[in-house]
């Protein structure tokens, strides 16, 4: 088990290096730092001095991969690649355009992101599984049919409309909770209710439908027939046997996103004004702060790969047939 985990972590390293190379190519090779400086400072009427100053402020005034003017190991370390890209492995994300340290920002913004993403995840998982179970229990009846139609309809609505609709209905029309904002500690609760509800509903269609398919697939298995033949009532078959076995595919989909919860949701956070990582990313995209976007790409892939490893471990916990070697 431990061996396997170590091997998985080692296997993650070349992937992370790949991600790093992709972001490096994207941000420094496709467009040179000069292009970026010109874009930021305005296309016309930009002096070479201004570009040089912009690059120097951000540390982009070095060669990309190989610095011939330095000696020894510094030939490789005093380059953009080493200082900007490879340094991310040590979580040195550098500075944002407003001069703040990105690493510190990420640490402080992680909690608000988690405060909305975690309840959405837990509540969502519960609601979708229950809804799917109800549909499967009443399968081949109108309950099931209406449920599936509802799922497809919910799937066909853009998540933007859920947020706009939720804000309009609950905050503006009924005045139940504030439209947007964020507070410290328990104060945050009233700000979080709406984003969490909207988050759960907006993903309801596709997830419920998917879980329903998983349950139905399990219903066709032999052990279900055996259980029925023993004379077990349908509810026991469903809730004890099918639910337990269906947890395996459900877990694969669910565990992998747990680390990504730290990143928060781009849309919800910016709409509801929650100072998390999602709104940080959106602000960075809108102000074309390349350093922040680069850091978020790297962090995102790191968390995703971590999620994959977690998924494999969770397999062994729920399914004794699987042994990791």
């Amino acid at each position: 088990m431990l061996n396997y985990i170590i091997r998985r972590i080692l296997y993650a390293i070349p992937i992370l290096i790949g991600v790093n190379l992709i972001t490096f190519t994207l941000f420094f090779v496709v467009n040179t730092p000069d292009d970026m400086a010109r874009m930021q400072l305005g296309i016309k009427r930009v002096t070479p001095d201004a570009i040089a100053k912009w690059k120097q402020e951000r540390g982009y005034d070095k060669p990309l991969m190989f610095n011939g003017s330095e000696k020894g190991i510094a030939k490789f370390t005093r380059t953009i690649f080493f200082e900007k890209s490879a340094a991310m492995f040590a979580f040195h994300f550098g500075q944002a355009d407003d001069g703040r340290d990105i690493g510190r920002e990420i640490k402080t913004r992680m909690m608000p992101s988690l405060a909305i993403a975690l309840p959405v995840f837990v509540l969502g998982l519960g609601v979708y599984i229950v809804a799917a179970l109800i549909m499967v229990f009443f399968r081949a009846t109108y309950v099931d049919f209406v449920g599936v139609v509802l799922c497809v309809a919910l799937m066909s609505i853009s998540s933007l409309f859920y947020i706009i609709g939720g804000q309009f209905l609950i905050s503006k029309l009924w005045h139940l909770v504030p439209i947007s904002g964020y507070g410290e500690g328990l104060n945050a609760t009233k700000f979080l209710v709406l984003p969490v509800i909207v988050g759960v509903i907006s993903a309801a269609g596709s997830n419920t439908r998917w879980y329903r398919t998983i349950f139905l697939e399990e219903m066709g298995k032999d052990y279900v027939r055996t259980a029925r033949a023993k004379g077990l009532p349908e509810s026991i078959v469903l809730f004890r046997h099918v639910l337990n076995n269906a947890m395996i595919p459900i877990l694969t989909g669910a565990v992998v996103v747990i680390p990504l919860l730290f990143l928060g949701s781009l849309l919800a956070e910016s709409f509801f004004g929650i100072p998390g990582l999602g709104s940080y990313t959106i602000d960075a995209i809108n102000s074309q702060d390349f350093a922040v976007v680069r850091a978020m790409v790297f962090l995102g892939s790191l968390l995703y790969i971590f999620g994959l490893i977690l998924t494999d471990i969770s397999y062994t916990l729920v399914d004794p047939r699987i042994r990791l070697q």
């Binding site: 991600v19 467009n31 292009d35 970026m36 010109r38 995209i285 978020m296 790409v297």
Partner: peptide, 26 residues
């Protein structure tokens, strides 16, 4: 494809589109 798919797609798209904007501006 493991490397590409391990980057959250919105972020990858955002990064690529940002770079495209720079390219089109210049």
């Amino acid at each position: 494809y493991t490397t590409l798919s391990s980057i959250p797609s919105v972020l990858l798209i955002a990064a690529a589109v940002l770079m495209m904007q720079v390219y089109m501006e210049t």
